[in-house]
C-alpha cells in the first residue's frame, strides 16, 4: 500500500542508555503531519519534544516503532541515506542560528546548495532570492558579526528554504531573540507557511510563539498530551 503522508510516526519510542540507567524519553508517539501544515510542538524540558524533533529531522532514529517520511521507513536508512534525505527534503533553523562565522550571509545561504552540487551561478541566484524572501536584500556581504540577532536568524531561515525543502524544522527559533524580533521572525515563518505552503514544524516552550501555528501538539513525559488544531479564520 502506498503511503503519501508527509510524516507518520507510529508508536515511536526512544530509549537512552542501557540497563538500570536506561531512560525512556519517548513512550510511544503517534503523530501524522500532512504537507502545508504549521505545527508547534510544545512541552517542558524533558517532555520529549526535542527528541521528537531530532527523530523528525532524521538526525536520530527511534528505538522502537516506525517513522515514515513520504512513505520511506527512516529507521531502516543508513546514516548517509538520512543525510541525503535531509539534504533534499529538510531545512533546519536552530535556536543559536548556527551560521558560519566570518562568512558572508550569501555564502552561508549558498552552503546547502554546495552540498547539492549546484553550479556557482545557480547557487548565487537562488541564495539571493532566498535572502530577498526573508527581507535581507542588500545585506548579502555582511558577516554574522555585522548582523543583529533577528537578521542572523533570517539568514538561517534563508539557508533553510534556499533548497525549497518539503519541511522546515525550527528548534526554538526565537529562543535567543527579544520579543519584538521574535514576533517578526514568527510573522516571517507564518508567511512562508501561508504564502508558499511550506510545511513548518516548530519546537517551542513559549505559548505566545506557539500561537502562530495552526496546530499545537503538547508533550508531557514522553507522550502526546494534547493535539489541537486551530480553525483558519
Amino acid at each position: 500500500m502506498k503511503d503519501d503522508t508527509l510524516i507518520r510516526l507510529l508508536a515511536v519510542r526512544k530509549i537512552y542508555g542501557r540497563g538500570p540507567t536506561a531512560f525512556e524519553a519517548l513512550k510511544g508517539i503517534d503523530l501524522t503531519i500532512d504537507g502545508g501544515e504549521f505545527v508547534a510542538i510544545m512541552g517542558h524540558s524533558g517532555s520529549g519534544k526535542s527528541t521528537t524533533m531530532n527523530i523528525l529531522g532524521c538526525l536520530d532514529v527511534p528505538s522502537g516503532g516506525s517513522y515514515r517520511f513520504l512513505g520511506v521507513p527512516v529507521e531502516q536508512l543508513s546514516r548517509d541515506q538520512r543525510a541525503l534525505l535531509r539534504r533534499h527534503y529538510l531545512g533546519f533553523v536552530f535556536q543559536g542560528f548556527n551560521l558560519l562565522a566570518r562568512t558572508t550571509a550569501l555564502e552561508n545561504v549558498e552552503l546547502p546548495l554546495i552540498y547539492r552540487g549546484e553550479p556557482a551561478a545557480a547557487r548565487r541566484t537562488a541564495a539571493r532570492a532566498a535572502l530577498d524572501q526573508v527581507g535581507l536584500l542588500g545585506w548579502e556581504h555582511h558577516t554574522p558579526a555585522e548582523l543583529s540577532g533577528g537578521q542572523q536568524q533570517r539568514v538561517a531561515i534563508a539557508r533553510a528554504i534556499v533548497t525549497r525543502p518539503a519541511v522546515l524544522l525550527a528548534d526554538e527559533p526565537t529562543g535567543n531573540l527579544d520579543s519584538t524580533t521574535s514576533r517578526e521572525i514568527m510573522e516571517l515563518i507564518r508567511t512562508l507557511n501561508g504564502d508558499q505552503g511550506l510545511t513548518v514544524l516548530m519546537v517551542t516552550h513559549e505559548a505566545e510563539m506557539a500561537a502562530y501555528a495552526r496546530r499545537v501538539v503538547n508533550f508531557v513525559d514522553g507522550r502526546v498530551e494534547s493535539d489541537r488544531r486551530k480553525e483558519i479564520v
Binding site: A83, R86, H88, L100
Partner: peptide, 15 residues
C-alpha cells in the same frame, strides 16, 4: 557546532 550544522543541512560523512 559548525560540523553539526553541516551534517544537519545534508553533508555526508564523506563530505
Amino acid at each position: 557546532r559548525e560540523i553539526g550544522t553541516r551534517l544537519a543541512i545534508g553533508a555526508l560523512e564523506r563530505d
